[in-house]
Design a protein around this nucleic acid. Structure first.
Lengths: 159, 159
DNA sequence: TATTGTTATACTCTATAACTATA
DNA sequence: TATAGTTATAGAGTATAACAATA
């Protein structure tokens, strides 16, 4: 478990250190918030020993049964080369499995096992509680506003 | 230079993959945005070969000449053990230096060199251009709103 | 005893190159 | 010739333990 957060730790209030223009930069603020939220996620799901990326993979598999590795990787921005060990872990824990794809013998379809389905339900509940903690801080309206701003930041506005 | 971004890459539009509830989670959206912005920062300052953390350290040194390592680390959430190599790099490039502290012979005060001052000016200009690119996407008002929401997310509201 | 800075080290995450079996 | 999955490996980033010098 991470102890402190790079670019995010410390306690701003008890420190007389001047951060200059950093606090007014989008990247700095995003980094601080992201690390804080991710650490909270990790703590909230500590009993399940799951990483944010693993949770994302399980979620996508659940929404798209039989999806191929390449597609999951493309959707989540994971390199296929790094996905192998990640998925091996889920498979060894009996949460997910690879199955042959009839139409393409190179490919493998990814599926949640029954245990994986049950685990994901539990994980999703814990995640929802974690999410609610932060939603409470900025309100439901604030959350929608934040998501909207982040999306506009991420997806360049169309001409 | 990072090729793709974990939890952030892919091209949502050309993919029929259902991401489930991920897009409506604060952490997922924050992660995507943060990685996108950091990659842009890295690209914008590629000619200077500087990391976001190094830029942050230089900025804090500039605002607080003579600050000790421990204080810089606390302010930015860097562990002192990892700070050593980071600062060694800046020192070897002639951008910063450690000086003895008169009142405490254990401590070392951190200072920008003249070359460091000049470099930081250049870096700050490049950073400002990068910042402007994203401010343009959400407007000056949007940026202020975003920073405000992120701060409320990060600093638990006082009772 | 506690603190400042340091070394050594390990673990995670992410990246590149190269291979295999299919298509 | 290109693609899906894989292995091996290297590089960042971040974590802990232990130490010397000084307070």
């Amino acid at each position: 478990m991470p102890e402190l957060m790079t670019l995010a730790g410390g306690t701003p209030s008890d420190s007389p250190v001047d951060l200059g223009d950093l606090p007014s930069s989008i990247g700095f603020a995003l980094r601080r918030a992201q690390l804080l939220v991710f650490n909270d996620f990790l703590a909230a799901l500590a009993s399940e020993d799951i990483r944010a990326t693993q949770f994302a993979v399980l979620t996508v598999m659940n929404a798209n049964p039989g999806l191929r590795q390449t597609q999951v990787c493309a959707a989540l921005g994971i390199q296929t080369t790094n996905f192998v060990a990640l998925f091996d872990g889920l498979e060894q824990r009996g949460l997910a499995e690879r199955r042959p794809v009839e139409t393409d013998r190179r490919a493998k379809g990814l599926f949640l096992t029954d245990a994986g389905q049950i685990a994901l339900t539990r994980l999703t509940q814990l995640q929802a509680a974690h999410e609610a903690r932060f939603t409470e801080r900025i309100g439901a309206d604030g959350k929608q506003l934040l998501l909207s701003l982040l999306q506009r930041l991420t997806d360049p506005a169309p001409a």
